[in-house]
Design a protein around this nucleic acid. Structure first.
Length: 310
DNA sequence: TTTGAGCGG
C-alpha cells in the first residue's frame, strides 16, 4: 500500500480558519458534500456549504462575500488631495508633512497578530517613551515643595494660612523683608504676595484661636463619623438620616454607591455634630434591623489615616 | 463582602 502523499500544504489563511471556528457550521459532515469556495472575480468570493437543517433535510448554503473595501472612496479622495500643490507656509515644498509646520498625529489602530513581530517593536518603543515622558512630569507641592499634590500636603493646615508660603517657598529672612518698606511684597499689604485674596481672619497676625473655637472651618476628617455597614442595596440617605437623627444632629449622610448602577454598595457614613451623640447612636443603632438586615455601626476611620485610603 | 468623589500638575 502506497502511503497517500500529503496534498501540497496550503498557505495558512486565518480568515478561513475563523469562518470554520466562529460559525456553527461543521467543517465536513458525513453524508454532505464538502464546502466549496471560488472566486467570481471583481472581489467577489462565493462559498457553498451544505448542512442538515433541524428537520434533517439537506440544505445548500451559498454565500457571496464582496471584498470591496469601504475605504476605497475615502482613499481616492485622500489620494487626490495629496496631489494638490502646497500653499501657505508649506508653499513649494514637496509632498508629505514637514516637521517644521506639521505635527503628525498618532494613527491608532487595532492590530491582530499571532505573535510579536519585529515590525511592531519600534512603535511600541515610541509609545513607551511617550508614556515615560508624561509620567516623569514632576509633581511638586505648592506649599512645601514635596513631591505630592498640594491637597495632600501634610503641612497644609499650617502653611495654607501663611500668605506667600505657597509661591515663595522658604524665604530666608522674613524680618528683613518687613523692615524694608520698598519691598513690593510688603508694600502690597496683607493680602499676600501673590495678590490672592486672603480673608482677614486668615491673615498673618490675626487671632485665629477664637475662630477655631467658634466652630470655624471644620473639615470632614474632624467630624465624628460613623461607618454603617450591612446596608441593603436600596438603602437611601433619607432613611438613614431618619434613623440616626433620633440621637443628635446629623451633619452628613453619605451612602457608598456603585458608580454605574447607583445602587448602595452596602455601607454608608453618617457624620454627627457632636461626638457624644454619635457615640450614643453608634451603640443604639448597631445591631438594629433595617430593610431585613442587621445594621452594623462603628466609628469610621478617616480616609487619610487609613492605609491605602485615597 | 463591606472605609466616600473629585480636582489639579
Amino acid at each position: 500500500m502506497a502511503p497517500v502523499a500529503d496534498p501540497a500544504p496550503k498557505p495558512i489563511d486565518w480568515a478561513d480558519d475563523g469562518d470554520i471556528d466562529d460559525d456553527a457550521i461543521p467543517p465536513v459532515t458525513p453524508g454532505l458534500p464538502p464546502r466549496e469556495e471560488r472566486d467570481e472575480g471583481n472581489g467577489v468570493k462565493v462559498i457553498v456549504e451544505y448542512k442538515f437543517n433541524p428537520e434533517g433535510k439537506k440544505v445548500k448554503i451559498t454565500r457571496r462575500i464582496r471584498r470591496t473595501l469601504v475605504t476605497t472612496k475615502v482613499n481616492a479622495a485622500e489620494a487626490e488631495r495629496k496631489t494638490w500643490a502646497k500653499f501657505g507656509q508649506e508653499k513649494g515644498r514637496k509632498a508629505g508633512p514637514h516637521s517644521s509646520t506639521t505635527t503628525v498625529g498618532e494613527n491608532v489602530a487595532l492590530k491582530f497578530s499571532a505573535g510579536s513581530t519585529k515590525k511592531d517593536e519600534p512603535e511600541v518603543d515610541e509609545q513607551a517613551a511617550l508614556r515615560k515622558q508624561l509620567q516623569s512630569k514632576k509633581i511638586t507641592c505648592r506649599l512645601c515643595k514635596g513631591d505630592h499634590f498640594t491637597s495632600k500636603c501634610p503641612y497644609r493646615d499650617t502653611l495654607e494660612a501663611i500668605p506667600g508660603a505657597a509661591d515663595t517657598g522658604a524665604e530666608p529672612e522674613v524680618s528683613d523683608a518687613i523692615a524694608d518698606p520698598t519691598n513690593p511684597a510688603v508694600a502690597a499689604g496683607t493680602s499676600g504676595a501673590g495678590g490672592k485674596y486672603i480673608p482677614p481672619s486668615m491673615r498673618q497676625g490675626a487671632n485665629r484661636g477664637a475662630g477655631e473655637r467658634m466652630g470655624g472651618p471644620m473639615n470632614r476628617e474632624d467630624m465624628p463619623t460613623l461607618r454603617v455597614t450591612n446596608l441593603s442595596e436600596d438603602a437611601d440617605e433619607e432613611d438613614l438620616r431618619e434613623i440616626f437623627s433620633r440621637y443628635g444632629r446629623v451633619i452628613r449622610v453619605y451612602i457608598g454607591r456603585d458608580r454605574e448602577t447607583g445602587e448602595c454598595k452596602g455601607y454608608a457614613f453618617v457624620s454627627f455634630e457632636s461626638r457624644d451623640d454619635a457615640d450614643k447612636a453608634r451603640q443604639k443603632v448597631d445591631g438594629k434591623g433595617y430593610s431585613n438586615l442587621i445594621l452594623s455601626v462603628n466609628w469610621s476611620q478617616p480616609r487619610g489615616e487609613r492605609p491605602g485610603g485615597a
